[in-house]
């Protein structure tokens, strides 16, 4: 039977557990950022609530139809794969709606800061890197690559139409 994480709950527990073992001071930083807040996280159809109770991480599965209270963050496996493989930037993912963060400014900033701590630590913690490798091994890399090509083609087509418009209006030199 595989020990690889399958549900979002398993992933979050595995990631935080690896961090707590290898760099406990950074795990403490995450606990400080999270405070008493209950956050909801969504990855495709997996929904969880996340909180710290007496400094212990509690991750609870939610029904797929559960209403998401703020703060919450949602994305999908294909977006995570595209980010990990460098086929999409975080700013693109957010502006295109592939990553959705809801909450007050402080709540959203805390979620982003926690993710940053985990990613930064992953460069020094072998277990975290293996988790990322396991995640990528289970997802398709061709789709993010073709999506990127399509996005770039749309951006270039838009840029060409913009240049043509500006050229027709005499605002820039016309291009052939």
């Amino acid at each position: 039977m595989s020990n690889s994480p399958s549900h979002l709950r398993d992933w979050i527990i595995a990631l935080y557990g690896a961090l707590e073992e290898a760099e406990p001071h950074r795990a403490q930083a995450i606990r400080k950022l999270a405070g008493d807040q209950i956050s909801r996280m969504v990855l495709d159809d997996d929904r969880v609530s996340v909180r710290f109770h007496d400094e212990v991480l509690r991750v609870t599965r939610l029904r797929a139809t559960a209403k998401l209270k703020s703060p919450n963050g949602a994305t999908d496996r294909q977006t995570v794969t595209a980010l990990l493989l460098g086929y999409m930037e975080v700013s693109e993912a957010i502006s295109l709606g592939y990553i959705r963060l809801r909450g007050t400014t402080d709540e959203v900033m805390a979620i982003c800061a926690i993710i940053e701590i985990l990613v930064d630590a992953s460069t020094r913690i072998p277990t975290l890197q293996k988790n990322a490798d396991t995640f990528l091994a289970a997802t398709d890399s061709e789709a993010p690559r073709s999506d990127r090509r399509n996005r770039m083609a749309r951006v270039q087509a838009t840029a060409q139409r913009e240049r043509a418009l500006l050229g027709r209006e005499g605002l820039i030199n016309s291009f052939d």
Partner: peptide
């Protein structure tokens, strides 16, 4: 145009 690895690119958006 491309930044790798993607995980580090995500936490250094200021270097884009």
């Amino acid at each position: 145009m491309r930044r790798l690895p993607g995980s580090l690119a995500a936490i250094y958006p200021d270097r884009r």
